[in-house]
Computed example of a mutant assay.
Amino acid sequence: MRQHDVSAPRPHRRRSVSRRSTTALGLAVAALALSGCAGRVQDGFLPRAATQNGEQVTRLWNGAWIAALAVGVLVWGLILWCVVAYRRKKDDTTLPVQLRYNVPMEILYTVVPVFMIAVLFYYTARDEATLLDTSKHPDVVVNVVGKKWSWDFNYVNEQTYETGTQAELTGEPGAEKNLPTLYLPVNKRTEFVLTARDVIHSFWVPAFLQKLDMIPGRVNRFQVVPTEVGDFKGKCAELCGAYHSQMLFNVKVVPQAEYDAHIAQLKAAGNTGQLDNSLSSKKIMPNQQGILQDSGTK
């Protein structure tokens, strides 16, 4: 007579334990993810916008995702409905009616995607035009010069500058203090005039949610209004050579008085005029000649 080991777990018990373990693991992962992302859902899991333009980017991003999720839920729902409603029955041996064409259906799945793309294109083009609009008079103009592998900042209105050298990232705390630092006054409109000395770079402050390429021989520009005092990080977003990853800079958004004090410190250190970037200030700022005097380059 065969004897059974009553201590051995039964198959259905093993499956039940496995399901409970998987469920518990899934809930733990979900809780961990939600705890790490708490407070950022309203930003679409983007960095919190620190400029007026950034808030507009966040709205466009969230709107696009909401529309995409709505379409996804509709499509997934229709797929599941078809799977359930038209599943093969055990006693059904006949094939459904075979149709070669269904013109209304073909028109539907052609027109609807075109309409969706048109709507997305409209809102993207509208916001892009706003983000790149430089028709408003800026309070501060900064000519940002990209170079391998650092940054120069020409404060055009104030006729002073700050120059940077390639970062030496040792892994030790405090290394970032040696990076070039861009100062901006809070709640004031700043225009970035972007030029490059050598190869294509890209000016990017992640907290601004906006970046733009810097192309040799070409001037690109955009404006921002920083809305939050604080320290932020900037970097090059275009692969530009061996030390691209070390092409970093700091951004300090400060009250106007602190900004003025920093400008005074730069002038006191002898940083007067503008650093040469192979472009005259007349070409850099063609719309500002009523305000600025072309004093040449240093």
Rank of each mutant, 00 (worst) to 15 (best):
residue 277 N to H: 07
residue 167 A to I: 03
residue 179 L to N: 00
residue 51 T to Q: 00
residue 233 K to H: 09
residue 193 V to T: 03
residue 282 K to H: 11
residue 180 P to E: 02
residue 284 I to R: 13
residue 274 Q to L: 15
residue 104 P to Y: 09
residue 226 P to N: 13
residue 139 D to L: 03
residue 243 Y to V: 00
residue 275 L to E: 10
residue 47 P to Y: 07
residue 1 M to G: 14
residue 80 L to T: 09
residue 175 A to D: 15
residue 150 S to H: 06
residue 171 G to M: 05
residue 39 G to W: 12
residue 199 V to H: 02
residue 200 I to M: 05
residue 2 R to D: 12
residue 6 V to L: 15
residue 17 V to N: 07
residue 28 A to D: 03
residue 64 A to K: 10
residue 138 P to S: 12
residue 53 N to K: 07
residue 118 A to M: 12
residue 131 L to F: 07
residue 75 V to A: 13
residue 86 Y to D: 09
residue 49 A to E: 10
residue 72 G to Q: 09
residue 65 W to H: 13
residue 107 I to T: 11
residue 43 D to Y: 14
residue 193 V to F: 01
residue 252 K to M: 08
residue 47 P to E: 05
residue 14 R to T: 12
residue 19 R to N: 12
residue 128 E to Y: 09
residue 118 A to S: 13
residue 223 Q to I: 01
residue 260 D to Q: 06
residue 93 T to N: 15
residue 92 D to K: 10
residue 26 G to E: 08
residue 43 D to M: 02
residue 81 W to S: 01
residue 180 P to F: 05
residue 98 Q to R: 13
residue 18 S to Q: 07
residue 42 Q to C: 14
residue 94 T to P: 00
residue 199 V to F: 03
residue 244 H to G: 04
residue 56 Q to I: 06
residue 156 V to K: 02
residue 103 V to L: 15
residue 37 C to M: 14
residue 206 P to I: 05
residue 51 T to C: 04
residue 272 T to W: 04
residue 223 Q to G: 02
residue 286 P to S: 03
residue 208 F to W: 09
residue 4 H to K: 13
residue 258 E to A: 12
residue 127 D to W: 06
residue 78 L to Q: 09
residue 163 T to Q: 11
residue 10 R to Y: 08
residue 181 T to G: 00
residue 160 T to R: 09
residue 248 L to D: 00
residue 173 P to C: 04
residue 28 A to Y: 09
residue 205 V to K: 00
residue 12 H to A: 13
residue 218 R to A: 10
residue 141 V to S: 07
residue 15 R to W: 14
residue 289 Q to K: 11
residue 236 C to K: 00
residue 119 V to F: 11
residue 130 T to D: 06
residue 78 L to E: 13
residue 2 R to N: 14
residue 249 F to H: 04
residue 36 G to F: 12
residue 150 S to L: 01
residue 154 N to K: 09
residue 250 N to I: 02
residue 5 D to L: 07
residue 159 Q to N: 15
residue 159 Q to Y: 15
residue 207 A to L: 00
residue 83 V to F: 11
residue 111 V to I: 14
residue 150 S to A: 14
residue 289 Q to D: 06
residue 12 H to G: 05
residue 44 G to V: 04
residue 71 V to S: 14
residue 35 S to P: 04
residue 109 Y to W: 15
residue 183 Y to M: 12
residue 171 G to A: 05
residue 242 A to I: 07
residue 176 E to D: 14
residue 235 K to R: 11
residue 73 V to E: 06
residue 23 T to N: 09
residue 253 V to K: 00
residue 221 R to F: 05
residue 34 L to R: 07
residue 32 L to A: 10
residue 172 E to I: 04
residue 160 T to Y: 06
residue 41 V to F: 15
residue 39 G to Q: 08
residue 84 V to M: 08
residue 97 V to M: 08
residue 194 L to Q: 02
residue 291 I to D: 13
residue 40 R to Q: 15
residue 6 V to H: 15
residue 261 A to C: 03
residue 195 T to S: 10
residue 168 E to A: 06
residue 99 L to C: 12
residue 261 A to E: 12
residue 181 T to L: 02
residue 80 L to C: 13
residue 61 W to E: 05
residue 143 N to M: 02
residue 167 A to E: 05
residue 198 D to I: 01
residue 214 M to V: 01
residue 261 A to K: 13
residue 259 Y to T: 04
residue 269 A to F: 02
residue 148 K to Y: 01
residue 131 L to E: 01
residue 273 G to L: 07
residue 130 T to P: 00
residue 128 E to S: 09
residue 54 G to F: 01
